[in-house]
Simulated scan of single mutants.
Amino acid sequence: MVSDEKALRDLLAEEGDEGGDQRERLASLERELDQCWDLLRQRRALTEAGEDPGGARVRPSSTVEGYRS
């Protein structure tokens, strides 16, 4: 997924404003990746707390995208 994201970014850099479909695919891929990173962080936090990392669940992209840095 990360390599697909990089390839789409490179393609969009070459095409400029003409990559509408690629821009939509990139946005979708970014949301999916954010969910994966969130799941990984949940699993690590559960492990560090001495709990079962299998209890981590994929959260909706609306939740993950709403985080503040």
Results as ranks from 00 to 15, higher is better:
1 M>Q: 13
1 M>Y: 13
2 V>C: 08
3 S>N: 14
4 D>L: 14
5 E>D: 09
5 E>W: 10
6 K>G: 03
7 A>E: 12
8 L>I: 06
8 L>M: 13
9 R>C: 09
10 D>S: 14
11 L>P: 00
11 L>E: 10
12 L>A: 09
12 L>H: 02
12 L>M: 14
12 L>Y: 03
14 E>V: 07
14 E>R: 06
14 E>T: 04
14 E>A: 13
16 G>V: 01
17 D>W: 09
17 D>C: 01
18 E>A: 15
18 E>F: 06
19 G>P: 00
19 G>D: 12
20 G>P: 00
21 D>P: 00
22 Q>A: 15
22 Q>E: 14
22 Q>Y: 11
22 Q>D: 12
25 R>V: 00
25 R>S: 13
26 L>I: 06
26 L>P: 02
27 A>C: 05
27 A>W: 01
28 S>M: 03
28 S>Y: 08
29 L>I: 06
30 E>D: 03
32 E>K: 06
32 E>P: 01
33 L>F: 05
33 L>G: 05
34 D>G: 09
36 C>Q: 11
36 C>T: 11
37 W>A: 09
37 W>K: 15
37 W>H: 14
38 D>S: 02
42 Q>D: 05
42 Q>M: 07
44 R>M: 08
44 R>S: 09
45 A>T: 15
46 L>V: 04
47 T>W: 08
47 T>H: 08
48 E>R: 14
48 E>V: 05
48 E>D: 15
49 A>V: 03
51 E>T: 02
52 D>F: 06
52 D>P: 08
53 P>S: 07
53 P>V: 00
54 G>V: 11
54 G>Y: 01
54 G>M: 05
54 G>T: 08
55 G>E: 12
56 A>D: 12
58 V>E: 04
59 R>K: 15
59 R>H: 03
59 R>V: 00
61 S>Y: 11
61 S>V: 09
62 S>T: 10
63 T>M: 11
63 T>I: 12
63 T>V: 14
64 V>Y: 07
64 V>K: 03
65 E>K: 08
65 E>D: 07
67 Y>E: 13
67 Y>G: 04
67 Y>I: 08
67 Y>Q: 09
68 R>A: 10
69 S>K: 09
69 S>I: 13
